[in-house]
Structures are given as C-alpha cells and as structure tokens.
Design a protein around this nucleic acid. Structure first.
Length: 643
RNA sequence: GCCCACGUAGCUCAGUCGGUAGAGCACAUCCUUGGUAAGGAUGAGGUCACCGGUUCAAAUCCGGUCGUGGGCUCCA
C-alpha cells in the first residue's frame, strides 16, 4: 500500500493541519460550526481563490472566504453575473456574451444583442434568474485545451469569447464553468451551485459600453445588477441608492436655488445663483485668509492669452484635445486658458529673482475652460468652465520636500474644516505622453514620495496617471456615504521652468533653475461645492449656510421689533432674512425647514413684550427663549467653531 | 464623441387609440393677523426643447438638431 500523499495547510489562527491530497475545502468545512458553514462562499489557498469543491493539491496558507472578504463578495457577484447571463441567454438565445465581472457594488455583463435590452425586460430576466436558482444546478469547472475551447465556443457562436481566448497568453490554463445548459469561458472561481446565490438580486440599469473599453470597437449593452446573500442587505443597498439620489447636488441645487446650468448659456457652464454664490464667497474668504497665513500671495490673471504662450508651455502639444479652439484677433491667435500656470510663471519672470525670494507662492482663483466631451459632463462635478483654487510654488531643490509637506498640511487642515476626515492618497507617475527628461521625472516623483513618507501618509501608486508635465499626489476625499471624490492635487514640475527658461540667482551669484509645484486644494470650486452639497445633503453647517437665520414674525404688529433684530444681526455679520409675508407661523417654519435654514426665530407678543427671541433650530426643534445678546453670542461662537 | 432612455407651466409631474393642454406647488390679487412643518378664495401663466416630414388633423407617429440622464475605468 502506497502511503497517501498529504497537504499541509496553515489556518488563519496559526494552526497547521494535514489532509489527504485532493481534499476539498468543502470537506474541511465539515469540521466547522454550522453557522460558519452557512456563511462560507469560497476558500483561499495562498494567493489563489478556490471554489469549495476544488481539490487541494498543494501546501500553503488556507482560509475560508465569506461575505466579509472582498474576494468572497467577488465570487458571489461573479457567480451572480453568470446567473444573469444564463437567464439572458434563455430569453434571448441570439445574445452573445462579452465579459461579466464583479464590480464595487455588484456586477455587470456585457451583451451583444440585436435589440435593446430595456428596464421592462428586467423583470423577465429576474424571474428567469430565480428559476435557475431554484433549479440549483451544480457549477462545474472544466479545464479545456485551447483547441477544444475554441471549437466549443465556435459551436455555440460565442464570437466574443473566441476573441478573448485568442488573446490569452500561450501558457494560460483555459477554464470554463457550466451550470445546466449554460457554459461560460471564465477563470472563476464560483460558488458550488446556482442555488447558493439565492434570490436577493436586482437588475439596476443598462448602458452602452465599448467592447474591451475601446471606442473603436462595437458597442455592447452592459447590464448592471447587484446581489446579496441576505434580503436585508439588498434592501439596504437599494436604500443607499435612494439616499444618494436624494442628495444629488443637481436636484438639491435646483431645490435650494444654489446654481443652474442652462441650455441658453451652454452645457458645462455654471450659473451661481445668489445662495450658491454666498457659499462660494465663504469658501473663498476662508481660503484666502488661510493662504495669507501660510505665506501665499494672491494674483489675478486674464482668461485668454496668445496661443504662443501655450506653445511655449507645451499645452498645444499635449493638451490640445482638452482646449477650446483658438480665436483670432488682429491676425493673432488667442486661447481661452485651460490652466493658470503660464501666467504665474510670467509673473515670476517679470523680475530677476534671488534665492532670497524663494520660495514664492502665487495663489489665484483661476477660472479655466476645458473642452470636455459632451457625454462626460455631469452637474457641477465635470464641467467646461470652472475655477481652480490654484497656486504655484517656485522654490529651490533644497526647499522642495519641505514645501510639499507644507502643502499636504494645508490640504488636510482645509479638508477637515469642511467636514472631510477620510481620504485616499494616490501617487500618480509618468504617463505615456510627457514632456521633460526621465531624470527630472524621477527627481519629481522622489520628492513627492519623500513628502508622503515624512507625513507618514498611506498611499497607493497610480502608474501612468500623472500630468504631462509632472507626477502628482492626488487626495480623494470620502463623503458621508463613503463615496470617493478627487479634489486636491499636488504636482511637481521641473519641465515648465525649463520651457519658460525660469531663473533665480543663487548664493554663488550664478543663475539656477527653480522648481515649480502646482497645487489645488478644493480642486475646482464647482466640484467641491457639488461634493459639499451632497456631503451635507444641502443642510450646510452654520458657518457655510447661505442663510443662517430667518426671522418669523407672527403678525404685522411684530414687524417693527423684527426689523430691529434683523438689523442687529446684520451688523454682527450674520446672514439673516426676515419673512414678513402674510402667512401663518407654521407655514413659515415649514418653508424654513425645507430650505434647510439652521436657525428660525419666532417673534410674537411675548417676545416683543419681554424683549426676547424664541429660537428654533432646524432638526433640534424649539430651543426656548433667549435675549438677542445670548442668541448672537451663540451664533458667533458656533460660526467660529466652523462645525 | 458613442449606446440607450428622456425633454409638457418657474418646479414636480399627468395627458388613453393622433382630434388641438391638465394637476399640485410656486407666483399675483383679495379675505384671514394666525405661536413652532402646508388657512381660504380668485387669477395669471404653455409655439408641448427646436427644425422638418407623414396626416383632414401631431404633445402623441417618423427623421434630424440641441439639451438632460445612465454608462463607455474594473477585461474570461
């Protein structure tokens, strides 16, 4: 009798156990508690994920994957994608399958079909999916030799799959997964049967998507859907989608009369209405004060400049597709500015600079215009005209890391003040199209990396995502709903100083080349405002609220007293409104609540007689009566705290 | 830009089979002076996004243009 071969598995608790070679995770799972068994979706051996019925052939670190693991979720969604594809194929046998991966909150499948799939079809597809779940087919993995695979998918007319197989590397093990009559080319892994997916799924939307993400290819129909192991989880997810819709800045922008985008003006161009403009002013004033404190000087520059300037900067070569077309005046071409940097450089160059002048920090709310393809425009988030809170720091190589660290400090301080405490930091490296030498790119990337190390910030590298003139640190904030938004950016640039032949005179009396740092904290005022609206669901904290207080006199005879309060609060710089309309107080309160005004002050006989105010806070309700002084102090204190 | 869907009063939306336009809110006027989330009456408000076509007749059907929305990054 030959001794049976064994595999040694190390479990997460550190224990090491031996099993006969070929044991499946399912068999190991039998040892676990029934509650745990129910939760397990797949297993992980070293770096590969296995379905539960896959024999284990080698030693290694072993653990089970549940919904708590990202990989577990992905197996679940991946199997869900197959389930949906199978249902779609049953209903539309002529459909051809593209790819069907799991994504952040669910999964999709790209389908080629001779008719559009509409939301009306969703119910039918979902019904068919439920049927397949009930039929509970085992999901069977098959390894196919390349020829066999090609033959099989040719036979079932899955042309797109054939394209995929042909593009797989020579040595790749080709696998397919079958469930009932349905077989899909797939790397896996999957749940063990369609029944394990359960019925908590929902088709969400359908959209066009280029085959393999290339706009030269044909367009497929991408069906988005999601699924969860528990009904409650699906409901919560759908609820989150509803919440996000309620917070949509486009909707709130209209409701609260903050901004608009109008056909007569042009798409991607924003009108800031008075209330939106108030919030913007506050953002700007706060920003300006902080920048003065941190050694920046404000500058203003024009919206257009000669095209030649953009040729010098390299924009016409590397950025042209994002620029508005030039205009001709007096036989000279002028360009609407897509960036502010050449202007700040030109200001720098207006004098001979000494090393003693450095670092110089020029800041500006610079409004730039960029041509964005019509299909990518989105409310305030992606527009064609926007104002950057831009600044350029000119410094010596010695000063560089320190300057970047200072910028990072300022970024974090400003973002926190606006209520954002979570961020993801990315270091983006040299893209395919770039200007400058490799040495400079390396030096710039190192400087950014150093600063991140000094700050002890965790970050990810985003290869090839830098700007054409230099690498950058991007800081993406996470809002209340956990969504991530790109705002702040810090970019090191050795190239523009060279192109513009910038100099400073060093200690040695000789000319040297300064280094330039581009940076923005809000990124764009438009986008940041949009994010703020969604973050606060339109209910801005007191210091940002466009209207902080509304005075609600009960009857005409209270107007005089109300006017006096109004003037006093205005004098104290409080953004206050007086509602003298002929309406009942309940009506006025309702309107103030709907408009998300933080404080309401009710003024009636009692208040006039006692020279007090009856104060109500949005959300908190009636705060009782207080004197004007008490109320004003409360407001000013709360405004100062900016919370 | 591309695919799909959508575009009706300031806003949110209804409008059946093609027969010539409706509601609520907002607005105006009047009544009401009311104490913590909607008092009442009356009135005004539309080239049904725009251009063209089919038809006796188009908000409705067809084509085009403009705009908006979902996506086109996740690669078996």
């Amino acid at each position: 009798m030959s001794k049976q071969e064994k595999v040694r598995l190390t479990f997460p608790d550190g224990s090491v156990r031996e099993y006969p070679k070929g044991t499946t995770p399912q068999q190991i799972l039998e040892e676990m508690s029934p509650q745990f068994r129910k939760k397990v979706l797949a297993a992980k051996l070293n770096d590969s994920i296995l379905e539960l019925n896959r024999p284990i052939e080698e030693d290694g670190e072993f653990r089970f994957l549940t919904w708590e693991d990202k990989e577990g979720k992905y197996v679940f969604w991946h199997s869900s994608a197959h389930l949906m594809a199978q249902a779609i194929k049953r209903i539309f046998p002529q459909a051809k399958l593209g790819i069907g991966p799991p994504i952040e909150d669910g999964f999709y499948y790209d389908i080629e079909l001779d008719r559009p799939i509409t939301p009306e079809d969703f119910e039918k597809i979902e019904k068919e999916m439920a049927r397949i779940v009930e039929e509970d087919y085992p999901i069977i993995r098959k390894v196919l030799p390349r020829e066999k695979a090609l033959e099989f998918f040719k036979q079932i007319h899955e042309d797109l799959k054939i394209e995929l197989i042909n593009d797989l590397p020579e040595d790749e093990v080709i696998t397919a997964y079958s469930q009932g009559e349905f077989t899909d080319l797939c790397r896996g892994p999957h749940l063990v049967s369609t029944g394990k997916i359960g019925k908590n799924f929902k088709l969400l939307s359908v959209a066009g998507a280029y085959w393999r993400g290339d706009e030269k290819n044909k367009m497929l129909q991408r069906v988005y859907a999601t699924s969860y192991p528990k009904k409650k989880m699906l409901e919560e997810h759908l609820h989150r989608i509803e919440e996000a819709k309620k917070r949509d800045h486009r909707k709130l922008g209209k409701q609260l009369d903050l901004f608009s985008i109008q056909e007569s003006i042009g798409n991607g161009l924003i009108l800031w209405h008075p209330k939106g403009a108030r919030v913007r002013r506050i953002m700007e004033e706060f920003w300006i004060n902080e920048h003065y404190k941190h050694g920046y000087e404000l500058v203003y520059t024009p919206h257009v400049a000669k095209l030649q300037l953009w040729e010098t900067s390299g924009h016409t070569g590397f950025y042209r597709e994002n620029m508005f077309p030039p205009m001709v005046m007096d036989d000279v071409e002028y360009q609407l500015k897509p960036m502010n940097c050449p202007f700040h450089i030109t200001i720098y160059k207006s004098h001979l600079r000494s090393y003693r002048d450095l670092p110089m920090r020029f800041a500006e709310f610079g409004t730039v215009y960029r041509y964005e393809r019509s299909g990518v425009l989105h409310g305030l988030m992606r527009v064609r005209g926007f104002t950057q809170d831009d600044a350029h720091i000119f410094c010596t190589p010695d000063q560089l890391t320190d300057e970047i660290v200072k910028v990072l400090d300022l970024v974090i301080y400003i973002l926190q003040t606006f209520g954002f405490n979570e961020y993801d930091v990315y270091l983006s490296t040299r893209p395919e199209k770039y200007v400058g030498t490799l040495e400079n790119w390396d030096a710039a990337t190192n400087a950014l990396q150093n600063a991140l190390e000094v700050k002890g910030l965790e970050y990810e590298i985003d290869p090839g995502e830098g700007v054409f003139y230099g690498p950058k640190i991007d800081i993406k904030i996470r809002d209340v709903l956990g969504r991530s938004w790109q705002c702040s950016t810090v970019q090191v640039d050795f190239n523009l100083p060279e192109r513009f032949d910038m100099e400073y005179i060093g200690e040695d009396g000789k000319p040297h080349r300064p280094i330039m740092v581009h940076r923005a904290l809000f990124g764009s005022l438009e986008r940041f405002f949009g994010i703020l609206i969604e973050h606060y669901a339109g209910a801005f904290p007191l210091w940002l609220a466009p209207v902080q207080v509304t005075l609600l006199p009960i009857a005409d005879r209270h107007h005089n007293y109300a006017h006096r309060i109004y003037q006093e609060l205005r004098n104290a710089n409080v953004r206050v409104e007086l509602d003298t309309r002929n309406e009942k107080v309940g009506f006025k309160i309702r309107e103030a609540e709907v408009n998300k005004i933080p404080y309401m002050v009710i003024i009636g006989d009692k208040e006039v007689e006692n020279q007090t105010l009856s104060v109500r806070h949005k959300g908190e309700g009636d705060l009782g009566s207080m004197t004007l002084d008490e109320f004003r102090d409360r407001l000013l204190h709360e405004i100062k705290l900016k919370k």
